[in-house]
Design a protein around this nucleic acid. Structure first.
Ligand code: MN
Ligand code: MN
Ligand code: ZN
Ligand code: ZN
Lengths: 126, 126
DNA sequence: TTATATTTGCAACTCAGTTGCATTAGTATT
DNA sequence: AATACTAATGCAACTGAGTTGCAAATATAA
């Protein structure tokens, strides 16, 4: 059922995602907000913001959870199947708008695709 | 430095991968072999078999570790950047030989790509 | 202002994976 | 075949991301 009330926790978390457009790991949010919010609350609010399609989540290269703002998404149409890029130098993670075409796989029906690219980001790329 | 000795543990683990060609999660191996091998040993031998390019690893949809036999890989040329497919029905995970083409990403240098597809496998696909 | 349900904090838990260390067992040498 | 050497193993304890149950706090509607 998602977010029902505009609580302090919701506002604090949304502010973090307004500050910059790149993705933020749950771990980072928990430690960055440790003085204001409880760990459990952070995880629970992130969950609900995802249900509400305000954020979307994916797994980074260690299998840890990352969240990013949904861009072209509404409740009617949710577009979270884009690739993500994690910089091996600075660790920054971004949503990519470039489409990765998944070819037809023989004898299989593909429903979901997760693409995580790694390399150097714009700032770290000499 | 990888595997140096042909121990009982190495043989037991390699047998599991000879039985069938699909990938096996570390969790499954730990519990399946619990009566013969210690959990720590399973993880350590898997690590070394990967160093030796006998196996390769990747993360499944929950961020848990999976291993599969390397097919066209030698020590000189290791090809582990193929896509993987996890069946949402039966849970089976396979290496795919179909190539997923990663387009050029503006201002970024892509070194590694992880592609995990989910859907129905050949047996579960009606 | 009161009533009600949602949200929060806390502490304890889960579980995949790791680490330190003493013991065991491959392997090469005699 | 016995010895010495070192890698590999088992065990127990640990780590850390994420979860759960429950009582207290707080947003919202009446
Ligand atoms: Mn994204
Ligand atoms: Mn594979
Ligand atoms: Zn970078
Ligand atoms: Zn299946």
């Amino acid at each position: 059922m998602g977010i029902l009330r505009k609580t302090k926790s919701v506002k604090i978390l949304l502010e973090e995602f307004d500050k910059k457009s790149s993705a933020i790991s749950a771990i980072t949010l928990v430690e960055r907000l440790a003085s204001e919010l409880n760990k459990t609350t952070v995880y629970r609010v992130l969950d609900k913001l995802e249900e509400d399609k305000v954020l979307h989540s994916f797994l980074g290269k260690n299998g840890h959870k990352w969240y990013a703002k949904c861009n072209g998404c509404s409740v009617s149409g949710h577009q979270d199947s884009h690739p993500h890029f994690q910089c091996s130098d600075c660790g920054k993670v971004d949503c990519l708008s470039t489409d990765v075409l998944i070819p037809k796989i023989p004898n299989r029906k593909v429903d979901v695709s997760q693409v995580l690219l790694q390399g150097k980001c714009e700032e770290c790329y000499v």
